[in-house]
Structure formats: C-alpha cells, structure tokens
Simulated assay, not measured.
Amino acid sequence: MIDQSAYALKLLEQSGMAECKPCVTPMEERMKLTKASTTAKVDATLNWSIVDGLRYLVHTRPDISFTVGYVSRFMEDPREDHWATVKRLLRYVKGTVDQVIVFPKTGESGLQLTVFSE
C-alpha cells in the first residue's frame, strides 16, 4: 500500500487550509485561467511551495494530476484567480486525504503487478 495522507495533511497545514471545508471535485467545471490575468498578485513563494508539494503528491494521487498540471502553468506570476484554483484543489485533497494505492497479493506467487500503457 502506498499512502501519502500524512504528507497531504502537512501540505494542508502549510497552506493554512487544515480546517477548510472539503469539496468533491478537484477543479470547477469549465475553469479558464490565463497568464494575462488582471487580478491581484499573490505571494509567489507560498504559491510555488504549495503547487510544488501538490506535484509531489501526484505520485500517489493520479486523480489530481490534471489540475496540478494546469495550475503549474501559472507559477511564474500567480494571481488571485490562480490561487483560488489551488485552494479549491487543496479542499479536494482535504476531502480525499485517506485515499491510497493498494497493491494486493494474488495467489501464492505474491505480488503481481500488471501495467497497461498506450
């Protein structure tokens, strides 16, 4: 079993979202962000730190990979709307913090890993 729930909780604390209300989807439907945003700038260091932490979390959480990749595009000059999307993703992580990847044993031969690729 691969579990990063402790890391996810640490990331939530670091971002100040440990007590946030969870949500059921990682991103709003039809979300459109742009680098030419005119909303207020946010702390680039905090944004970078949190998004980088989410990129590490993707290794065991493929359900957040699209959203993390999307918000990673705006790390150079983060704005309020970009940060709002990151916070939404953190709320999703809060609600799904106990998700793990399980590699069950099969038969007497032990672990059997099957991988499919295109």
Rank of each mutant, 00 (worst) to 15 (best):
M27V: 11
V42D: 04
D52F: 15
V100K: 15
T34L: 14
W83K: 06
L57K: 07
R79Q: 15
T25E: 07
Y70D: 02
H82E: 05
R30K: 14
V51N: 03
F74S: 05
D43P: 05
T34E: 12
G16D: 00
L111I: 08
S72V: 07
L9P: 05
M75D: 07
T34S: 15
S65C: 11
T96A: 15
P26I: 01
V51D: 09
S117P: 00
V71Q: 01
G110I: 00
E19N: 13
T60M: 14
R30N: 15
L111Q: 04
G107K: 00
D63M: 11
K87T: 00
Q4H: 12
L89W: 03
L89Y: 07
E19M: 11
V58T: 15
N47V: 07
K87Y: 02
V68E: 01
D43W: 05
V97A: 12
D81M: 06
F66G: 06
T45E: 12
M17V: 02
Q99D: 10
L111M: 08
V86L: 07
I50N: 04
T85R: 01
L54Y: 00
T114D: 14
N47L: 14
P78H: 09
G95L: 04
D98T: 14
E118L: 12
L54A: 01
R79A: 13
A36R: 13
L57T: 05
V102F: 15
V115N: 12
R61H: 10
D52Y: 13
T38W: 10
L89Q: 06
W83H: 06
K41R: 14
C20H: 05
T60E: 08
G107S: 02
L11F: 05
G110S: 04
T96M: 15
A6H: 11
K32H: 12
L90T: 00
T60K: 04
K10A: 14
V24I: 08
S72P: 10
A40H: 11
D81H: 03
I2C: 09
W48R: 11
K105C: 09
F74I: 04
I2G: 03
D52E: 13
R73H: 15
L12P: 04
F74P: 05
K21F: 10
C23G: 15
A18T: 08
Q99G: 08
M31G: 06
Y70W: 02
K35Q: 14
A6K: 09
E76Q: 12
V42M: 07
V115D: 00
G95W: 03
T85H: 03
P78K: 06
T34G: 14
C20G: 05
K105Y: 10
V42I: 01
R91W: 07
S117D: 08
E108D: 15
T39G: 06
F116C: 09
L54F: 05
S49I: 01
V51S: 08
A44Y: 09
L90K: 01
H59A: 13
